[in-house]
Amino acid sequence: MQKKFRHSWVVLLLPVCAALLAVLLMLRAGRAQPAAPRYMLRDNGGHPALYTADGAGPLAQYDEIYTRLLPESDYLNLQQGILLADEAELQARLEDLGL
């Protein structure tokens, strides 16, 4: 009788595990993927400049800002290039830099 009891638990537990796995997979698939970067902000001759995400440009240059006068972390980030998803993120970053 004990073997039959163990077998019953396996039979009940198997569909529950399968349903749980299916729910987890659906939740994972339903997550929105982050937008691919559209722009890059980086140093160009001592001023921030706007490029496409693949580096074409500059599309615009912000001569009002001197990168060497920015905090070191901002300066270093601009040397490497800051990827931005859209215009709203660009505007927020420019405001952070003082424009």
Rank of each mutant, 00 (worst) to 15 (best):
R68I: 10
M1G: 15
D74V: 00
G98I: 09
L59W: 00
L27F: 12
L83D: 09
E89G: 12
H47K: 02
R42V: 05
T52H: 08
L69Q: 09
I82Q: 07
L25P: 01
D96C: 02
T52I: 01
L41S: 02
A88K: 07
S73F: 04
D43A: 08
L99W: 15
S73M: 07
R38V: 10
S8H: 07
E64A: 15
A36Q: 14
R31A: 13
M1S: 15
L24N: 13
L69K: 06
E95H: 10
V11F: 06
R28C: 09
H47A: 15
M40R: 08
L76A: 13
T67L: 00
Q91T: 14
A22P: 01
T52W: 05
A32T: 12
P15V: 09
Y51N: 04
G30F: 05
L84K: 02
D63S: 13
M26K: 10
L27P: 00
A56Y: 09
A60Y: 02
Q80C: 03
K4N: 11
E72I: 06
L20F: 08
A19R: 05
L94Y: 04
D86R: 07
K3C: 03
D54K: 11
P48N: 03
A53D: 10
P71H: 07
R38C: 07
L50W: 10
L24R: 12
C17V: 15
A22E: 06
A88Q: 13
P71R: 05
N44W: 10
N44V: 01
L76C: 03
Q61N: 12
D63T: 14
L41R: 01
L24G: 15
P48C: 05
L97K: 02
P37Y: 00
L12V: 06
G46A: 01
L21S: 15
Y75Q: 13
T52L: 08
Q61S: 15
D63N: 08
L90D: 04
P15L: 12
P71K: 05
D74H: 13
D86F: 02
A85P: 03
L83P: 00
L27T: 07
L59Y: 03
V23P: 01
E72L: 14
L25C: 11
A35Y: 00
L69M: 06
D86H: 06
Q91G: 05
L76M: 13
T52Y: 05
I65C: 07
D86T: 09
